[in-house]
Design a protein around this nucleic acid. Structure first.
Lengths: 347, 347
DNA sequence: ACAGGGTGCGAAAACGCTTACGCAGAGGGA
DNA sequence: TCCCTCTGCGTAAGCGTTTTCGCACCCTGT
């Protein structure tokens, strides 16, 4: 910005002997303009390396093309692996619509929250995409209600009440767990354990339902909760193994938990998958590099990102009409090497 | 931005019966203004919740208060743990000077590169902080030279040639490794191995030098290279253990590598630290949660971030005068539980 | 009483873009 | 030929700030 010579729209226009209005129309393809003039402008723009000043553009248009991407809750150790994947997908989808994303995944929640408010109030951004549990992020949602900025929430379930300028994309983990349970029971498994992150999570309900259908069940004491870290999974597994009943398959709420499960099992001398099968959730990038490569439930980040962006665009451009306020994206189970048929002696 | 009623500086001014110029002066404390008027404006601003429009501000000032933070090279699995820590520190330092950071850590390098250019050309940002090896990021630096945007590079060594609007903060890992080696040799260790990420890295030189001083050495075949992932460390350790000479201490270039080392050792039935000591580098947040908690070389992210920001501010505000173009930040060794005195039978 | 300097403030011109409006000219139907 | 419509483009008014300039006023010293 402080660089000496930056070309402006006026200079571009003068170099062609046309008005700035014509240049603006040519660039955006809006308004009436002849194809020839348009081509000339576009070519000259390329030659001179003209790029519109984003601040001037936002000011004139009275809205920005920047979207904030935020994560509700503590930025815990490694929790970002999920965000990186999803962020990628969202960015790609936004660009298709001429928008760009801004991330501010730095600092503790209260600090990030004040930054987001600052961004909104200063009109830097014109929309928000929020990722995370609406219960955990209740205090995030409150200030957003007031300012009425177009917002899309990506979560496991919709918030209790949704303001008018908010839409929601929920990740329906039901199908993924059903497939996982179907796969494992077909392989002979009947005794399961589950390691989750918090009791309000509906995943366990889906699992119980699926298990019931297939005449299988959780072992006694087979539901454990832990922090969503490898350490959490590790400790939970240690506890699990101290109990009298041992499951033949462990379902972990996230791949990070599953990492810890794998380590704890191998310390206990149990081989995966020969002695015990393990399933994770999220299919984070390292899942396929674990030992053994983890069978897990896959999230289609591209679809998730696209749906979120689509909802947001409808909110931003009201001429696009309405869209279902709550959209759903299903999950799928992928088999790798941490699950197998149950062996005779264990069955 | 599309929200119905956003208050502007004009409305604020009218509500007080003063001119917009006065309000602007009051807010920024620049120019001549009486303390009483200033207080009145500030109070009213608070009451009405006025926040300046960032786009208008940037346009009028001809420069933005936004700084881009980018990472040179592939965004590999988990490489972000380092970035999150450093990003936090940089953001904190920037805010002190009235700037804010924008991260765009999404997508492959060529995509991120084009996004950064876009940000620069559209005047969205007025400075750049780059993190990473200048060799790896050579193709990043080239376009930046042309546009002459104030840039600070955070790396292990300065780039071959530095354009005039670039400054550099180098992380001097020498002291950290010296301390680590001193600690280990004092504990009786004489036989070392090193697992690095690429041969051009100067860390190994510092280690060799320090070992020499303390009459210790690397075992034959004791230098291995691997991807900076747990898997890389795991595999490298497997290779290491197949060799005839076994070290009593393994130095890993990063904590991520060390994670894999720990797993491989324990699979091989070797206890850490009883049989073998392990040292990492970076002190990532999970380092203290590993089993056992990892002795590692600490980076003072706060100082690193502050120095980088300080350099950038001097570049942005030329009235601040000059500053050393290459600044240095040292590292420190922290002892946790993965290193110990060598036992008799192993010595 | 008057000059001179300092102080607090307002008027207005920028910053680079978008877009409503209007005008000239071309084309077509009577 | 005239009138009407449609097309392509230029003029100019914004968007919400910052900042230069200058004016009025007050204070001080003569």
């Amino acid at each position: 910005m402080k660089r000496t010579q930056e070309i402006t729209i006026r200079e571009l226009a003068e170099s062609l002997g046309v008005s700035v209005a014509t240049v603006s129309r040519a660039i955006h393809g809006r308004g009436r303009i002849s194809p020839e003039t348009r081509a000339r402008v576009l070519e000259q723009m390329e030659r001179l390396g003209y790029v519109p000043n984003l601040h001037a553009q936002s000011l004139a248009r009275r809205h920005s093309t920047l979207i904030a991407l935020e994560y509700l809750g503590q930025m815990e150790v490694l929790s970002d692996v999920f965000l990186i994947e999803l962020g990628r997908a969202i960015q790609a989808a936004l660009v298709k619509h001429g928008y760009r994303q801004l991330m501010n995944l730095v600092g503790d929640p209260s600090y990030r929250q004040s930054t987001l408010r600052q961004w909104i109030n200063s009109r830097l951004i014109s929309g928000v995409i929020l990722i995370g549990n609406p219960d955990v992020g209740a205090e995030w949602l409150k200030p957003l209600r007031k300012v009425h900025i177009p917002t899309v929430l990506i979560a496991y379930h919709p918030p209790a009440e949704m303001p008018d300028r908010m839409r929601c994309v929920v990740l329906d983990v039901k199908r993924g767990w059903q497939e996982a349970v179907a796969h494992l029971t077909a392989a002979g498994h009947r005794q399961f354990a589950y390691i989750g992150s918090h009791p309000t999570d509906p995943a366990l309900d889906y699992i119980c339902e699926a298990l019931h259908q297939h005449r299988a069940a959780l072992v006694a004491g087979g539901v454990l909760y832990a922090n969503e870290t490898p350490l959490g999974g590790y400790e939970a597994t240690k506890r699990l193994l101290q109990q009298s009943q041992r499951p033949t398959a462990i379902l972990a709420r996230t791949d990070l938990l599953a990492m810890g499960v794998l380590l704890a099992l191998q310390e206990a001398g149990l081989k995966v998958p020969e002695h015990i099968s393990v399933v994770g959730h999220d299919d984070i990038p390292i899942a396929q590099w674990l030992i053994p490569p983890l069978s897990t439930i896959q999230i289609d980040y591209a679809v998730l990102g696209e749906k979120a962006v689509e909802s947001l665009i409808h909110l931003l451009q009201k001429e696009k009409g309405d869209i279902e306020p709550v959209q759903t994206v299903a999950t799928r189970f992928v088999v790798r090497q941490s699950t197998t048929k149950i062996t005779q002696q264990e069955a």
